[in-house]
Design a binder for these strands. Structure first.
Lengths: 192, 192
DNA sequence: GTCTATAGGTTGATAGAC
DNA sequence: GTCTATCAACCTATAGAC
């Protein structure tokens, strides 16, 4: 998971996990320090701007993890429909194993910050854009027209975020199955 | 908007608004009391179980508002595709006017509570189910098979929640336009 | 660089006068 | 039913010893 053992990385990794699962407002700095076994002095030494800076870096780190997973699964199949099915089954397994948003979605932080913190909102916006682009790129590779691929990429990102939100709320993975079928229909008939 | 002027209703209406827009954790009881011009004594008189009870009733009231809007717009057109287009343009107008979640979505509260408060999680789950059913009902009315309608109803709910999340994060309404097109394709070819 | 102590503010909740 | 005063607990952040 995390390679180095510096205090900075321990704090950031723990913060990234807790912010994703429980949210920005529900996660206290004390909680992060306790779970990462770090002293408060270190936090403000490494993140002099405090909680906001920590959250900003956490969003960016979460983005890296999510994109990595996404790329890793999408590259397993050349056919985009097969690749998406595999990605969705992958996320489904994770949610079944543990009903938590870690390495899955930053929707919670996005909704917590859209109206209260412009810097963090922008960081979340960038995550959504990047994820959409990964999907679009996959579609372009398999022959979709760039404009069509971009629109579909955004639609895929929308469906996955929406499905995850409702999955964790319901504590089941039916919504992900539902969009798996929809994507099948959508991408098969709507090509080129 | 609110008909009666009892302290209870003033508190509940304000809480419902603030919880939806800023979330459960970001909204303090003091803030609710200040905005509703109510004394703290009244809050605990009418909501003896405190913040949790207030949030529970707020989720249910928000559900009523959202369902009302949804039914109101869906009933304007008999064709479900036209009705959904109208609903989406309606939500788009609201978000353009003011980039806030009020009377639009409870996704923020759902994500804040899914892992920390079972009572509130269940209330949010019920909201998502109810909204899905409104869509499904509309599809059944226009000739879709019940099972197909149920699956599509959930898919519609997923897409709208996902699109709203990304809309407020981006501060634009492009995602809602994107799913409007998708729904057109999806419901036109996939009927009966 | 690490750690502790603590400041200064806010939170949800309670007690008790009226 | 209404209102105020107050509580203990928590929060983010800072100061300063080591």
């Amino acid at each position: 998971m995390n390679t180095q053992n510096t205090s900075r990385e321990k704090i950031l990794n723990t913060a990234t996990k807790l912010f994703q699962i429980n949210g920005f407002n529900a996660t206290g700095l004390n909680e992060i320090l306790e779970e990462s076994k770090s002293p408060k002095g270190s936090l403000y030494y490494y993140f002099p701007e405090g909680k906001e800076q920590l959250a900003l870096e956490a969003i960016q780190l979460a983005c890296k993890s999510i994109v990595e997973r996404l790329r890793g699964t999408m590259d397993k199949y050349s056919d985009p429909v097969e690749a998406l099915k595999y990605l969705i089954s992958n996320i489904t397994d994770d949610l079944n194993d543990e009903n938590k948003l870690q390495d899955i979605s930053i929707s919670l932080m996005a909704l917590e910050t859209y109206s209260s913190n412009e810097k963090l909102r922008l960081a979340c916006e960038q995550v959504f854009t990047e994820l959409s682009n990964v999907y679009a790129h996959k579609l372009i590779q398999s022959g979709f027209a760039p404009q069509k691929a971009e629109e579909l990429g955004m639609a895929i990102e929308i469906m996955i975020e929406g499905a995850i939100t409702i999955c964790v709320t319901r504590k089941d993975t039916v919504p992900l199955s539902a969009i798996s079928n929809i994507l099948n229909v959508l991408l098969s008939q709507d090509s080129l």
